[in-house]
Write a protein that binds this DNA or RNA. Sequence first.
DNA 1: CGCGGCTTTGATGTTCATCAAGTAAAGTGG
DNA 2: CCACTTTACTTGATGAACATCAAAGCCGCG
Lengths: 231, 231
Amino acid sequence: MDLKHQISDCNDCVYRSWAFKHLSTDDLVVINAKKAEKFYRKGENICNEGDPVTSFMYLQNGLVKLFKTEASNRQHIISIARPKDFIGLLSVFSNTKHVYSITAIEDSTVCFVDLTVIKNLIKTNGDFALDFFEKISIISESVIKTRIDINTRQLRGRIAYILLFFAQKIYNNDKFSLPISRKEVAELIEMSTENVIRVLSEFRKDNLIQIEGTNIKILDMDRLEKICNLG
Amino acid sequence: MDLKHQISDCNDCVYRSWAFKHLSTDDLVVINAKKAEKFYRKGENICNEGDPVTSFMYLQNGLVKLFKTEASNRQHIISIARPKDFIGLLSVFSNTKHVYSITAIEDSTVCFVDLTVIKNLIKTNGDFALDFFEKISIISESVIKTRIDINTRQLRGRIAYILLFFAQKIYNNDKFSLPISRKEVAELIEMSTENVIRVLSEFRKDNLIQIEGTNIKILDMDRLEKICNLG
DNA sequence: CGCGGCTTTGATGTTCATCAAGTAAAGTGG
DNA sequence: CCACTTTACTTGATGAACATCAAAGCCGCG
């Protein structure tokens, strides 16, 4: 499927039932008129810290990272968003400017809906408002939880956590290709690149995982979960 | 003022203009009928992890902490909420059970409004919905930001950050009485109690602050901000 | 081909938690 | 009200966890 050239009608959108189930056909016509679907190749920038918030962004396909860049140029990855996630978190309501930058870490399709349209729907369609808010809350709560989970663990626990995260939450498979570099893993779980590599090697030597470049296979899920839970 | 026995009518609530400016007198009558105002002494528990979410909670007065308790019994403080904050974060929309425990760290008054009433207002009053989302989003975004700020600093930077937090965000005064113990500071910024004390002593020796028990006075704001910003 | 970025391993030093031990403060029961 | 227990606070010493530095191999790309 060539995502680049897929232009869908909201009415037929595969995700309609997920995010917009309480919208009438009339509502969808309005959205359809004010939406833009954009394709991004892996590595392409979707928005930058400081950009004005004008659209509500919905990840249809792919994988993106939210991050902040420090004065020293070091990056901190706040979260990784999956298909069906509203990206940009709560900024749509709390800010006029984006707080984080967003970049595709896999080929991705993002649907942009004009923010005034969404706000108007919230005003006029109460069921949609509740639904919408539930979704956005779940995503933001999970960001908070993940940050805490990571920061309360030490290195081995963090690596285990992130491996399980990709295997269980993202790819739903023991075997996957890590979409981010070792350096980015370091930026995601707040440790040095060298130590990310060191712990991964340790895990390999301990027969917990198998690594070939970016390809990772989890060999002993039980033990990995134990390491994750014990910190 | 004896907070314990203050029972207010929503219509006269000093915070009406802040949180509920888009509600009609009729709406307020409904809320008034379904609300409870409760007073908690410092140290008293307001809700526990796992409790069902039935009310929307609004901090009228005082200061509370949100925290999680680990299996090992160590606590992690997620955030400190101020008057006018909606406490309980996004759980009202994303969960049926509370994710965090909440305890008063100063004498506090919490207003509980039945959740079905709030949800109904969101459905029927679009202006209220938008307003409400904006407030709750600002609070949750700020929790995410604070967690990142803390976790990207090392010990001296963290202590500086938290001192500035209390001075600027909570008390709006260079001189204040720290409402939490050294141990709780440690739980808030993820370091050991001993090191909290050590760094505070260092700051005292460097004439950055003055300490007498829980009373703290910031002597050199500029230098403290520099330490905070440099990590 | 050569340059820059990512990866990997080893050596070194810093930052930090933990342990130990003592003092002060605050609650508790007789 | 006092002895008693517990909890908070404080300082120093030790070792573990971790970042940083250094050096070398490995691609991908102009």
